[in-house]
Every structure is written in structure tokens, then in C-alpha cells.
Design a binder for these strands. Sequence first.
DNA 1: CGTTAGGTGACCCACGGCTA
DNA 2: TAGCCGTGGGTCACCTAACG
Length: 286
Amino acid sequence: MKPVLRQVTHSPEHSFAVRKDTGGDMQNTWHYHAEIEFLYIRHSAGTWLIGDHIGHFQSGDVVITGANLPHCFRHETTYMDSGETICVKFLPEILGDHFLQLPEAKSIRALLGKASTGLQLMGKTKEMAAALIEAMLMDTPGKKLVHLLLLLQEVSESRDYVPLSSKGFIQSPGNSDEERIRTIFEYTMKHYHERISLDTVASLLNMTRPSFCRYFKSKTKKTYVEFLMEVRIGYACKLLVEDEKNVAEIGYECGYNNISHFNHQFKSITGKRPLEYKRDYLEQHS
DNA sequence: CGTTAGGTGACCCACGGCTA
DNA sequence: TAGCCGTGGGTCACCTAACG
């Protein structure tokens, strides 16, 4: 497998990167990098894994991933031709130590610290950030920098964002565990709708079941079954709001053989029953 | 020799299929 | 719908092997 530490290259006129990806270029594997990243989902939907957080994204979402925070965005195949994302990547150093120590930069400093868990922007802040990121695509180099500062300032002052991953889920460059975790995550994302036994995933790492359980929990702060459940329920949430299947069909499609068990786990993850979740979602987005 | 990673066996408990 | 029971997952204690 290829190394997963990504090196971001910039053109000579830029100290940070603003890039639009379309179709298959959007697809990525479990990776991390030293840069802080803003990702704006211009037109797509899928599942994101950020640290130990699993969730569903859709068009309009904006997320910040901190330095060395492992993440992966898996776009649905229906967006392989039409999908579009815009990412802004920058090293915190480009702002300079002196700048970040200024009293006026206090909130930006705090935001960059909080980004270590990954942050999903919400409400008006999300819309504002999307508009700024959109503008940065066409900006002159100097104006890009101004807009980056404005983006950081506006987000840091609004505080309209939610943390995604657990604290402490930061990848150290050169960590030999990353490939193992990535192997497990990628296998899970490919097979979550099927039956997956612990022995199978343990064998992917040439481990016994107890060793794998212990290893996975030590690295992700959750058991593999909890992780798998979150992936499945995340997919179920997406199917529910698409309104094309009933609850039982969705439960079976997500890998559950028992719908009462599916309902129970759905509530334990989301706090709501499947139909309640769907009703609330449709009320909020109507 | 201490530390760390990983294996073995045992136990408990939840899930889920089956039956009445 | 409830109860039974086999299966599988999580964890613990203890062990071995490798390594510095």
C-alpha cells in the first residue's frame, strides 16, 4: 500500500492551496497531512470518517480538519461524474507565530486548536464559509490570503460549529499503526452492508480476535463493533432522508438481520427512532 | 531485566434465530 | 410476543517472545 502521509504542493505564487476536485478526483483514502484543511462539499454526498467520528455529508457541508488528523471522504458512486468539492489547505505557520500571539488573533488561535478534533460548520457560518471558499477559487493570490484570514476570523467568532472526533485522535507522522487502521477502515467501508465477523477483520491484520479487539480499542477509543454500528447507522440515516425505502428495507440493507435490533441500535446512536429521525430531518430541511 | 506486543483460555453478556 | 439457547463479541488474567 502507498504511504498515507500526504505532501501538499503549492505553486510558486501561493503559500497555501485552494483546489476544486470533480468526479473521481474527489475520492480519497484514509490519510492525514500537516496542513489544516477546509473542505466544502459543493455538490456530492457520502460518508466521512474524521478521527474516530463517522458521519454522512451532503451538498453544502463544510468541515475543518486539523493538522495530522486522519480523515477520509467516501463519495457515493452517483457523484462520480457530477460531484464537486473545494478544499483549502494551509500550514498554520504561514500565519506566523507573532500573528497568532496578537491579542486580536486570540479567537483564531483557539479555533486552530479546536480543529484538532475536526469541526463541522453549522447554520449561517456554514453558508458564509462556503461563499468565501467559493470566492477564493477565483481570487488573485493576495485576495486569497485576505479571504483566508476573513474565513478564520468569521468562523472563530461565530462558534457555530460542532467537534467531530474525540480529543487525542491525532496521527503522529511515521506511526506504523496507520496502515493497519486504514486497512480495517477501508475493509469496513466496503463490506459494512454484509455480515462482518471479528475473526475476519482480525485476520486482515494477522491477529487473533482478542488481540485485535484490544488493539482496535487502544487506537480508536471504541470497540470494532461500535465502529461498525456507527458506519451502518450513518448509512441508514442517509437512506431514511432519501425517502425511497421503508425502515425494514433500510435495516436489511445496512447489514441488520433483525429489525427490532436495528431500531434499538438506531436509537442508541441517534437518540431517536428511525421514523422520528426522518420526520425531524424533513421538518428542518423543508 | 524490564517493557511491550501479541496469543491462549475462560468467562460474561448481548444478539439473533427458532419455536410455541 | 416471549422465552430458550447457540453463537459471537468484549475483556480479563496470564503467558511467551522479542527487543533494547
